[in-house]
């Protein structure tokens, strides 16, 4: 146990070292950094405008009001951008496999994920995060949530769980790189797609979609169910804790990654 803790502490320290170098090298290209961050902001801003203009025409969707949808949109965006900042290194992982830089990671005595993620920390996602925060604040001010301790905790759990789900998906995406380098676009449905379509409460997509996102890829656990609680559609306190269950999603994702690394080591792709 003590050794475990020691290792964890060490790993964390190393990760921070990676992050500081990442930021340092990013700051060599300040313009590029700001523009990319701006781009992140603008892309999500378009999504926001899409919602905004739809609600100028329609008043509710499936009973959800404009500000409730914004609450949903901003929390999902927050979850996504935190996950991206940490784990988007997996996004360019196909390049790492293609150019063979993954080899240099394998010849170092450290966990592979720590090294991959550390070397590709993405501060530029701050643009998206900023957008999410602004919209979130707006939604908080205009929603009749009736904030209390339980609800604040719900939001925090949503962000923790959501970050875990998206990070897990990025991990799966990267693990696919070990098998194929050119079918990866498909995974975007689950990452970018989930961000894009998670802007509306999952309930509007019908029963089947709700089942899928409850039991297969647990988006609904970090979006729909806790949202019902936040917007006072249910009093069931279980909804506060549901988002935390989504963290278990990381287990199969990690297993798949390990499987991928083993495959890489036997095929040398």
């Amino acid at each position: 146990m003590v050794i475990r803790m020691e290792r964890l502490k060490h790993g964390l320290k190393l990760y921070c070292h990676y992050v500081s170098i990442s930021i340092k090298s990013m700051m060599q290209y300040k313009t590029s950094f700001f523009l990319t961050a701006l781009g992140q902001f603008l892309v999500s801003f378009n999504v926001f405008l899409g919602i905004h203009f739809m609600f100028l025409r329609f008043h509710t969707v499936n009973g959800f009001t404009y500000s409730e949808v914004l609450l949903c949109f901003s929390i999902v965006l927050l979850e996504f951008s935190v996950a991206e900042m940490i784990a988007r290194g997996f996004d360019t992982f196909s390049q790492m496999v293609r150019t063979g830089s993954f080899d240099t990671i394998l010849v170092r005595p450290r966990n592979e994920i720590l090294q991959v993620l550390g070397s590709k920390f993405e501060l530029t996602r701050i643009g998206r995060m900023l957008q999410a925060t602004i919209v979130f604040l707006y939604a908080v001010l205009h929603c009749n949530v009736g904030w209390n301790f339980a609800k604040v905790m719900t939001v925090i759990f949503m962000i923790v769980g959501g970050t875990a789900v998206f990070s897990g998906l990025f991990t799966v995406y990267a693990a696919f790189c070990f098998f194929t380098l050119d079918g990866l676009e498909f995974m975007n449905v689950f990452t970018d797609g989930a961000r894009e379509f998670g802007k509306y409460p999952i309930g509007i997509y019908g029963k089947k979609m709700l089942l899928f996102t409850t039991f297969v890829i647990p988006y609904a656990l970090v979006q729909y169910y806790p949202l019902l609680y936040l917007t006072n559609r249910t009093d069931d306190v279980i909804n506060i804790l549901i988002p935390l269950c989504a963290v278990f999603f990381l287990i199969p994702c990690y297993a798949f990654w390990k499987f991928g690394v083993r495959h890489y080591k036997s095929s040398g792709s």
Binding site: M54, F58, T60, V61, N62, G63, D182, G183, L184, E185, F186, N188, V189, G193, E196, F197, Y200, I204, Y205, G206, M209
Partner: peptide, 23 residues
């Protein structure tokens, strides 16, 4: 993969408009 992605994308879009249409 690209085709599947686009198909899924289109499908989800339609679900959104359907929800608005029904409301």
């Amino acid at each position: 993969a690209g085709m599947t992605t686009q198909f899924a994308w289109g499908f989800m879009q339609i679900m959104i408009y359907k929800a608005f249409y029904e409301t």
